[in-house]
Simulated assay, not measured.
Amino acid sequence: MHHVHVWSLTPGRHLVSLHAAIDEGEDRQAALLAIRRLLAERYGLHHATIQLESWHQCADEPEPDEGHRG
């Protein structure tokens, strides 16, 4: 997991958004349910927005620029 943001909407209502990288061919629905269960059981987070991605492809990362050095 990366690109994790957690905040409180009200004192008793906490929210999370995150990116989760999973292996190609994995059951995306099972991964999503497992992440939601972990967030609820371990951290008490019941409202989550989860973006599933491939291991080497973050949707928010810029495309590599062949002419850019940095």
Rank of each mutant, 00 (worst) to 15 (best):
R37Q: 14
G12A: 13
G70I: 10
H56Q: 15
R36G: 05
R36F: 03
G44A: 10
Y43M: 11
H5Y: 07
H19E: 08
I35R: 06
H3P: 03
Y43C: 06
E24W: 07
H68M: 12
E24K: 15
V4W: 06
H2D: 11
V6N: 02
A20I: 01
W55T: 11
Q29E: 12
P64E: 10
Q57P: 01
T49Y: 00
E66G: 12
M1L: 12
V6I: 14
R13I: 04
A21W: 00
H19Q: 14
H14T: 04
E66L: 15
E63D: 10
L33E: 14
E63M: 13
S17L: 02
H56Y: 11
E66M: 13
A34P: 03
H5P: 03
H5M: 00
A34V: 06
R28I: 07
H14Y: 00
S17D: 09
R42G: 02
R42V: 05
H46T: 09
H3E: 05
S54I: 08
D60P: 00
D60Q: 13
R69Y: 13
H46A: 07
L9M: 14
G12E: 12
R36A: 04
A59R: 15
H47A: 05
E41L: 09
Q51E: 15
L39I: 00
L38R: 15
H68N: 10
S8N: 13
I50A: 00
A48M: 03
P62E: 10
R42A: 05
V4E: 02
A48T: 04
A34T: 09
C58L: 02
L52R: 05
P11E: 08
L32M: 12
D60E: 11
V4M: 13
E63L: 13
Y43A: 02
V6Q: 04
D65I: 05
A34G: 08
R42M: 01
A59Y: 08
L9G: 02
H68L: 13
E53V: 07
L18E: 02
Q57M: 12
V16N: 00
P11W: 03
H5Q: 09
T10E: 04
R69T: 11
R36Q: 13
H5G: 05
H3S: 11
A59N: 14
Q51T: 11
G67W: 06
V16P: 00
G44K: 12
H46W: 03
H56D: 14
S17F: 01
D23S: 13
Q57K: 14
H3N: 09
A40C: 02
A21I: 06
M1E: 08
L32D: 04
E24R: 14
E61D: 14
A20R: 06
C58D: 01
H5D: 04
Q29K: 13
E26Y: 07
W7I: 04
P11A: 07
H14D: 06
I50H: 01
Q51N: 12
L39V: 00
S17K: 00
L52T: 06
R37L: 08
A20V: 09
E61F: 11
M1P: 03
W55P: 00
G25I: 08
W55D: 11
